[in-house]
Amino acid sequence: MTPDDTVLLDHGAGGRASHAMFSKMILPLFHNDALARQDDGAVYPVPAGRMAFSTDSYVVDPIFFCGGNIGDLAVNGTVNDIAMCGADPLYISVGLIIEEGLPLKDLQTVLQTMADAAARAGVKIVTGDTKVVPRGKADKLFINTSGVGMLFEGVDVSGSRARPGDKIILSGTMADHGIAILTAREGLTFEGDLKTDSAPLNHMVKAVLSSGCEVHVLRDPTRGGVGTTLNEIAGQSGVGMTVFEKDLPVKKQVNGVCELLGFDPLYIANEGKLIAIVPEQHAVQVLDIIRADEFGRDAAIIGEVTDQSVGKVFLQTAIGGRRLVDMLTGEQLPRIC
């Protein structure tokens, strides 16, 4: 590979070029037994129990941004979706749709990031597919990841299980990912680094679920942000919620950009945060466990579940006012993940 080499239609044609790309670029990075067999699908052992299965596609624009790229986003995204089911993610598949002309070194970087992300999360990329489409038929690189994981025993988390009196925990600062993408895309430069928060949350979830603490809901507030996710849970569970503005963690820089551009951080995407809704008596312990994780240091109890105004989320503002936090309508920031 020379520095100027790009992906050609041949690379997706299934012939010699495809083969070379797989064995030279992909296999060494993702190396594991299931993938190395190079069969049509992956075969792997599973312990007895219940499984969680999830899929997501990534079309973020631009594909490189501060703190990450589409590769770790795609791995962490599916890892987190499985973790939010109360499961331990094990195996992942990767589908690449590449626009002809993508520099091979960019692809290499993305693949390397995916391998690193998989290693960090402790999951294996066991099967995959590569397609190349003519210039203009896709935008640089789209990635689909799917994955499976085993449910932790005795765990029953669901968006429908929030109960009045429960506490709402957010595992860290809001809006980091959305603002990182926006600033990268629009070429806006601000003081300080506005980095994506993309991170695997499965280790944090494992620590929480194996602590013996009861957990009713786990969700990662990605597109639509914390505001939209809480609305979804309130609707599913048939409860109301009150969130306290003074307790909402937001980085100073991120808040500044939001103020400047007129965005509400409550509606901006996160890629490495979770919301845990837990009975009051377990809230402090769960908070401590989350804070002990490297991606949960800024975690906070941000609100509580009520039996008032069912299906609605209210914000107690810093100055003591109260207002509705509605679902986000329409797309505030397109192609954020």
């Binding site: 509400d264 914000l315 107690q316 503002t317 810093a318 100055i319 003591g320 006012g321 109260r322 207002r323």
Partner: peptide, 9 residues
């Protein structure tokens, strides 16, 4: 005014 809940204080 709406975001800070000023109307209801």
């Amino acid at each position: 005014i709406f975001r800070h809940g000023i109307r209801n204080v």
